[in-house]
Design a protein around this nucleic acid. Structure first.
Length: 432
DNA sequence: CAGTTAATCACAATAACCAG
DNA sequence: CTGGTTATTGTGATTAACTG
């Protein structure tokens, strides 16, 4: 933590004193500690006819709801107790303050009664943006949550009255503004760097997908002569490849266990995993004896929902839901790992989706056995299948490495950002 | 009664369970 | 096999139930 702070040119204030409050040990000697209520006053404004709803998000942005998103909200039948919000108000969201829902509004509008709209007690005497940074920092460090009186998870109820009793670090006004400007600048830089890393990850994932797709459907040699495949989802394939219906390649199995005590497997989007049925998590079946057997090396597929389902080769002996599809390779001219890549591609690129059936395309879109059996796949020579599968393994390994690295960098940037904000608003560092 | 506090809703995503 | 349903989580709200 200290070493991360050292990355910026650390400048300390000349003198410090004990703060006397629990959440910060010492503060610059010329700063003051003031209760929230001496600095800010709660406003109770009537709602105007033209007001739109202002929302305070957990990242601290306080803006018209429609600026961020328009869906996923319900509208009140009668906006009982609603209040006016004005641009520049320090807004505290009593329910979600513990998670950082505190900020300065960038718009005029109205909000629900769980919001507190605060203005400086003496106009122009404090910079609300400084205190928004400070309070969000107190949320991030868990201090606001520690004040909770209620029992349920979101009961923190950090209301104006609680805010009013807090002793807040209060630098001179010019310093508040200097700190705000500094943090605005720095956090914008950090956010930009994070956005860049996120784009990089997207690009890596996209590129990986393209390479996998190319390998599976066209092979590794780009110069090989091509022919029409007759499969609408591929188009052309190498001229020396063949095609086969799945029923000549794999066989669907259904072996009901009629016994319990066997490991229950779950088919997740990260592969087949052993499910912990004693943890109380997820859905639990009344009767596991009707589950079907899966042996190591066999395929298991969630064909119940072509949107959220997936397919994998099991690394475990166990049982899965009888609603799932277990099948095994029966054609010695095919390589298991090439097939798996092909199937997984068909999920990710919504190829199977086109062959689905059901009442709802959202959540209930199945892949009927008949369509599965008649599904036509490319058949490269066996040795080439192995080469393709090996090449894809390598691609995946390399891109995983880059993606993990970028994710780690994002994590570090986020940490750095909160450490920086913490240091600036509590006077651990002097900014200029 | 108004203002708080507790409970509940909505919606999306994931991974299924169950009855006929 | 088909159609209907569910548990859980996160994050934005709304609304019912208390309390003085």
């Amino acid at each position: 933590m200290e070493s991360t702070i050292a990355e910026i040119e650390v400048q300390r204030y000349e003198a410090y004193m004990n703060s006397g409050v629990s959440w910060v040990k010492e503060i610059p000697a010329h700063w003051e500690l003031k209760k929230g209520k001496w600095l800010f006053q709660k406003q109770d404004r009537p709602v105007r006819a033209s007001d739109d709803i202002v929302t305070c998000f957990r990242d601290g942005q306080v803006t018209l709801r429609i600026n961020r998103k328009t869906e996923g909200f319900t509208n009140a039948l009668k906006e009982h107790g609603y209040q006016g919000i004005r641009k520049g108000d320090l807004v505290i969201h009593a329910m979600d303050a513990f998670a950082g829902a505190i900020g300065v509004s960038d718009s005029d509008g109205k909000a629900t009664p769980v919001y507190a709209a605060c203005v400086p007690r003496i106009s122009g005497s404090v910079n609300p943006y400084f205190f928004a940074y400070l309070l969000r920092n107190m949320a991030k460090t868990g201090f606001i949550e520690s004040l909770a009186k209620g029992i349920r998870e979101r009961s923190t109820d950090f209301r104006y009255s609680d805010f009013g009793e807090l002793e807040l670090t209060c630098p001179p006004l010019e310093e508040q503004t200097t700190i705000v400007d500094f943090l605005d600048r720095k956090t914008a830089q950090i956010d930009q760097a994070i956005a860049q890393k996120k784009r990089l990850i997207e690009q890596l994932q996209e590129r990986r997908q393209i390479l996998i797709q190319r390998g599976v459907t066209r092979g590794l040699n780009p110069d090989v002569p091509m022919k029409d495949s007759g499969m609408d989802w591929i188009g052309q394939i190498p001229a020396h490849w063949e095609v086969k219906k799945l029923k000549y390649v794999v066989k669907i199995l259904k072996r009901i266990a009629n016994a319990t005590g066997i490991d229950v497997l779950s088919i997740t989007q990260r592969g087949v995993k052993v499910k912990d049925i004693n943890s109380g998590e997820g859905q639990i079946a009344l009767d596991y004896s009707k589950y079907q057997l899966v042996f190591r090396g066999e395929f298991a597929m969630n064909h119940m929902d072509l949107l959220t389902g997936y397919v994998d080769i099991s690394n475990f002996d166990g049982v899965v839901s009888p609603d799932y599809r277990v099948f095994t390779l029966t054609n010695s001219k095919f390589d298991k790992h090439y097939l798996l890549r092909l199937f997984q591609l068909c999920y990710k690129c919504r190829v199977f989706y086109a062959y689905g059936q059901g009442v709802s395309q959202l959540g209930r879109w199945r892949f009927p056995a008949e369509n599965f059996n008649d599904f036509i796949i490319p058949q490269p020579p066996h040795g080439e299948q192995q080469e393709i599968a090996d090449a894809i393994d390598k691609i995946e390994l390399a891109s995983d490495k880059s993606i993990n690295q970028a994710e780690l960098q994002i994590k570090k940037l986020r940490e750095y950002k909160s450490i920086l904000i913490n240091a600036a608003v509590t006077g651990k560092i002097k900014v200029c």
